[in-house]
Structure formats: C-alpha cells, structure tokens
Simulated assay, not measured.
Amino acid sequence: MFKVPDHQVAGHMAGAGALGPLVDDSGHFYKPLQSGERGTHEVAFYTSFSTDTRVPDQIRKFFPAFHGTRDLEASDGSGMHPHLVLEDIVSSRINPSILDIKIGSSTWYPEASEAYISKCLEKDRETCSLTLGFRISGLQFYGSKETGFWKPDRKSVNSFTHDDVRSALRKFVSSNSPTNSDIEPDCSYASIIYGGPDGILAQLLELKSWFEDQTIFHFYSCSVMMVYDKESILKGENPNPQIKLVDFAHVTEGKGVIDHNFLGGLCSLIKFISDVVTDPNK
C-alpha cells in the first residue's frame, strides 16, 4: 500500500496533483526520478556509491540504503513513473522531530547552466547559505500530545536569519513548546541528542573526518537530515538521534580534490551545534 509520507519536511511533495515521493509499510521511500539529467545522475550516484570499495563501511550508515529503481503509478496521476527505492529514514518513528539542513555556501554545481547557477546563487544570497555555509530547508518539531508538531511553512523557513537558525537548533533539543516564541528554549535534551558518544555531534564529527580526506565525490545541494524521537525521552527510552545525507542529483566527481564547499558548511553546522552543547543556557 503506497501513501504520501506523513513526515516530509522539504523537497517536492506529493498531493494536489503534484509529483512527489511515496512510502509503504515495509520501510521503503520511493522518490520519483527528476526529469532530464538530474534523475539519471542520482541513480548513477546511488549505483556507484553502493559498490564503491573506496567508501568506508562506517560511512555508509550516513546514507540511505539503496534498493534500486521501480516503476510506480505517479502521485500526480500522470501514469507510471520510475522511482528510486530507498530506506525510509523515519518509518520506525512515531512522532519524529526532524531538521533538513542543506549544506554548502554554493548549492550549484560547476557544470550547471548559467540560468541554473543564477537561480541558485540568488537563493543562496537570500538565505543563510552564503554566509553560514548551510541553511535550514525544512523542519518539524514534536511538542507533546496536546500541542502536536511545530512545522513552519517553507516561505517562513527560507526567510530564517542567523538568529532564527540558532533558535531552531536550540528548539530542536528543548522540552518546552517550540510554538511559543516568548519562551526561551531550555535545551534540556542537548546532552542526550547532540552530545554523548552516539549523539548527533559525534556523528557529524565522524562524517567531517571522512570529508577532510575524501576526494571521490563533491556533494552539491545535498542535505543532512537530523532526526530523533522526543516521546522516547519522555518514556525514559533511547531517542536514537541519527543523521543521514540525502539528495544526490547534483553530486559530481571529486577528481582528487577535497570537497571544500561541503566540508566548510559541515564545519559551520558543527560549530553551531557545539555551542548549544557547551553552553545550552546562552
């Protein structure tokens, strides 16, 4: 049984005659291939990445599992359409809190057309990408059974300032309501979600260590998804904080050169999160 994802926070969304991803009850996420070279490039990346012996096994956990492609009835009713079959990152979570963060001060790839570069550069300048090296593309934070989710619309998220980004990263790990702007985020879950040997910060640092050496790929317009279960904390269980890299339509060959664009954005994100861990009351 295919259905529209309940917890998608960014990207093309299905519904109202729009082409978007689907999920099933088996933990699979079906992403429609984008038109033209984008879809071809993304399939090629997943295919090569899944068999590339140069990629360490411990790094593969940061990428969704790839199960090939499959033709499905498109969500927009246009007929059969090829889809990537991927791991559904949030399928095992009931009310996940999610941050989708696009990494890099430049989201355009060198081989892109002038029109595409101009479009991306304009958005990079309008958002925090150019100045911070990353921007928040989408989010949903679970409050409680009474308040549900805080999920700002895309226009609001795209207009986030530096202070909004800092606030969002603090709200992500706070116990008090994210919807009330008058209440300062308490960051009471920072040590559990961001900190510790298995926390998000440790995972980002492991990923950073690889990017300091890897010259196989350059990841343009790729996102880091951060997710955890707030309800698990309330029950005294492991909230299982996790990061995954997603969106690989614009990955290019590294050609022996370090991906400084992605690495710089990743370092910037790590600094922001480290500040929350070391001084949650700031």
Score class of each variant (00 low, 15 high):
F2I: 08
V4E: 04
V4P: 03
P5L: 06
H7A: 01
H7Y: 15
Q8M: 11
A10Q: 01
A10T: 06
G11K: 07
M13R: 13
M13V: 07
A16H: 13
G17V: 10
D24H: 10
H28G: 05
H28Q: 09
F29K: 05
Y30R: 06
L33T: 03
Q34K: 12
E37G: 09
R38Y: 13
E42F: 06
F45V: 00
S48P: 03
T51R: 15
T53A: 09
V55L: 14
D57K: 15
Q58G: 00
F66A: 07
H67G: 09
D71R: 08
L72T: 02
L72Q: 06
G79E: 07
H81A: 06
H83W: 00
H83F: 13
V85R: 07
V85N: 07
E87P: 07
E87V: 01
I94E: 11
P96E: 01
I98V: 08
L99G: 05
I103H: 04
I103C: 03
G104Q: 01
S106R: 10
E111C: 06
E114V: 04
Y116T: 14
S118F: 01
S118V: 00
L121G: 03
E122G: 08
T127Q: 14
S129D: 09
L132C: 11
R135H: 09
S137N: 11
Q140N: 08
Y142F: 15
Y142L: 09
F149A: 03
F149V: 09
W150D: 01
R154K: 15
T161S: 15
H162W: 05
D163H: 10
D164A: 06
D164G: 05
A168P: 04
L169V: 11
L169E: 05
F172N: 03
V173S: 03
S174V: 11
P185Q: 10
Y189F: 15
S191H: 14
I192N: 08
Y194R: 12
G195Q: 11
A202W: 04
E206H: 13
W210F: 14
D213Q: 15
F217L: 11
H218A: 00
F219A: 00
S221D: 03
S221I: 08
S221N: 14
V224M: 10
M225P: 07
M225N: 02
M226K: 04
Y228L: 06
K230N: 00
E231T: 14
L234M: 11
K235F: 05
K244W: 15
V246W: 13
D247K: 07
D247H: 07
G254Y: 13
L266E: 13
S268M: 14
I270L: 15
F272E: 12
I273S: 02
